[in-house]
């Protein structure tokens, strides 16, 4: 693990240097268009990381937010194309519509990089970089299998977006990891559309039906506050290690996720390598604008797992622990 993190950090450093070098060579022309699907806490952190990387390359950034509207995102990308930006980095809201947006931009000679949320056809974009929702889901599943240790284990799965690549794969790959563990029963799968209020209501309802719930999979950090509210009301919000503790695994690595780990309220957090992801997107965009093909064509970076036992050692690698 340490070697991999060292390798990733080294790669990030080298890439940033490359970004700066390429940026200095094209200092006058470069404007990177950035089109987000929505604005929420994780996106705010991504925007900051992109801003830093683009500024590091001495380029300008033009930013647009589609606010969950695929039509608006299409218009924003069109307008970035007509402005003649050097390259476009997009977090797609509609993973199908993103294919056409990418083809249209590339046909106009503008590289199209997708970030975080993969389009349905990866071949349509110049380059894609994101977290690895499947790897993260598997790590979560394997952790539950280990915690259950062969005993009967009732698990609540809070699902993110059902029409969203990250949401679908974080769920599907959890299932794959749990397939062989017949002692683990997923008692409820609650669609939440990434909404903390729905996470609260789903947890409340599931605990009503299954007071002996043993685990909760909350695949995004914003769900945690709602989950904690319910557990507190039921007297089950106790630190890891206390017998009545409910095993909780979450994904993202935000400051709130890190805080929950430090307070020993959750057992495992899988931190998305957000700064790394954003650096790679900027590097690929600038390289592609200079005529260099991105290799590999798509990258899915697995999250960094950490828990109360190793949070001190891992904190420097987790973006949310350093924000």
């Amino acid at each position: 693990m340490q070697k991999r993190i060292f390798g990733l950090s080294l790669a990030a450093g080298l890439m940033l240097t490359a970004v700066v070098a390429i940026g200095l060579a094209n200092a006058d022309e470069m404007t990177i268009g950035v089109a987000f699907d929505k604005i929420e806490p994780f996106r705010v952190a991504e925007k900051k990381a992109l801003t830093d990387a683009i500024a590091g390359a001495h380029a300008k950034m033009v930013f647009a937010n589609a606010d969950k509207d695929p039509q608006r995102q299409a218009s924003q990308v069109d307008s970035l194309v007509s402005q003649g930006v050097t390259a476009i980095i997009v977090i797609p809201w509609d993973i199908e519509a993103a294919n056409d947006l990418a083809r249209s931009a590339i046909a106009s000679g503008i590289p199209f990089v997708s970030l975080d949320q993969a389009p349905s056809d990866l071949q349509s974009v110049t380059y894609h970089v994101g977290g690895d929702p499947c790897a993260d889901g598997k790590v979560a599943g394997e952790f539950f299998v280990k915690e259950a240790a062969g005993k009967p284990f009732k698990l609540l799965e809070l699902q993110g977006g059902l029409a969203n690549d990250n949401g679908i794969r974080r769920s599907k790959c959890l299932d794959e990891a749990l397939k062989a563990a017949l002692n683990i029963t997923i008692v409820a799968r609650v669609p939440t559309d990434w909404n903390p209020q729905k996470a609260l209501e789903g947890t409340e309802n599931a605990m009503q039906a299954h007071p002996d719930l043993a685990g909760i999979y909350a695949p995004w950090n914003d769900a945690l506050q709602g989950v904690f509210s319910v557990l507190k009301e039921k007297g089950r919000l106790v630190p890891v290690g206390v017998p009545t503790h409910i095993v909780i695994v979450s994904i993202d690595g935000t400051p709130l996720g890190c805080k929950a780990v430090r307070e020993r309220l959750i057992d495992l957090e899988i931190a998305t390598p957000l700064p790394e992801m954003c650096y790679r997107a900027v590097v690929a965009a600038i390289k592609a604008a200079g005529g260099t093909k991105a290799e590999p064509h798509a990258e899915f970076l697995p999250g960094i797992p950490y828990g109360p036992g190793d949070v001190k050692e891992m904190a420097s690698k987790v973006w949310g622990c350093n924000s």
Binding site: E40, N195, L200, D222, Q225, G226, S229
Partner: peptide, 9 residues
């Protein structure tokens, strides 16, 4: 109830 003001409220 949730204990948080989130942008999607």
């Amino acid at each position: 109830r949730v204990g948080v003001v989130n942008p999607d409220l």
